[in-house]
Design a protein around this nucleic acid. Structure first.
Lengths: 144, 144
DNA sequence: CTTAATGCAAACACTTTGCACTCCC
DNA sequence: GGGAGTGCAAAGTGTTTGCATTAAG
């Protein structure tokens, strides 16, 4: 959590970037969450920082490779620290909206298969995988 | 192509829906494409139909299960006839933006694995999978 | 003739941008 | 004190909605 902020600071300095109030607080806030956060949520948590600065900070942090955004479904993108984002994939239920994180390793053999058969290197983390929890699926069937 | 329109007409009638100009033309246009189309593309092809009617038609066709929309990346959703949409998955290159369709069967074992290990029924078609063509990957490496 | 479908304009959600001001280095 | 960072307002996409009008059944 603290490490992220320090790493961010040095990366930014080494690129001639400065570390203003918005940036510092956005990094800290993203790192403080254990799951992904939307820009709007961050704006609520940091009332003195303007939304546009939050977006700008997130974008620059993403360029530096410290943060990544994921699309869980329709609705806003969500951000999280890069190393967590690369370790995890999200399954989002279309019915209840819940997002469950699963290890990226679950996709390893699919990656290999697609690289072999389609000359394509999958980045299966950028968009969540949608579907339905078995429990929601059951509910829609009994409800018919 | 013709079959889709006929099927649509009967499904709609059986739900007390009417078949106006916009709907008929939207169905035909979607069916005429062999790949996915955005609402805006359809609006260009059908200048006498207003965009909002195109969206309304697409949404209702989706409710009837005749059409599905897919998110290829950022940018607008794209629509295609339901049976094609369920047979195919898209791999979208983050660099060149090209979308390649691959058989849904490629994902069959992943589906089973995720159902078994996470009680989750994957609908791997709603969002495209992003990544990079091997050729684009090569280019970004040599260009650094 | 009744009520669903359409066109149009306005609203909406999310994100980016231009510009003046601020404050980090 | 010079230029990157910030706030604010405004614009930009992509999509939906309210309402008066048209037309399908």
């Amino acid at each position: 959590v603290e490490r992220v902020t320090t790493e961010a600071a040095s990366k930014m300095r080494s690129e001639g970037r400065r570390l203003g109030a918005a940036r510092r607080q956005v990094i800290d806030a993203v790192a403080a969450h254990d799951g992904p956060v939307s820009a709007e949520q961050l704006a609520e948590e940091l009332p003195e920082i303007h939304v546009s600065s939050i977006y700008r900070s997130l974008n620059m942090l993403e360029e530096l490779g410290l943060v990544r955004h994921v699309h869980l479904s329709h609705g806003p993108a969500v951000f999280e620290v890069a190393d967590r984002a690369t370790a995890v994939r999200y399954l989002v239920c279309e019915v209840c909206g819940r997002a469950v994180a699963v290890s990226a390793e679950v996709f390893a053999s699919l990656h290999r298969k697609i690289e072999r058969e389609h000359d394509f290197l999958l980045d299966s983390g950028h968009f969540a995988l949608s579907g339905r929890c078995v429990s929601c699926e059951r509910d829609t069937h009994t409800a018919h």
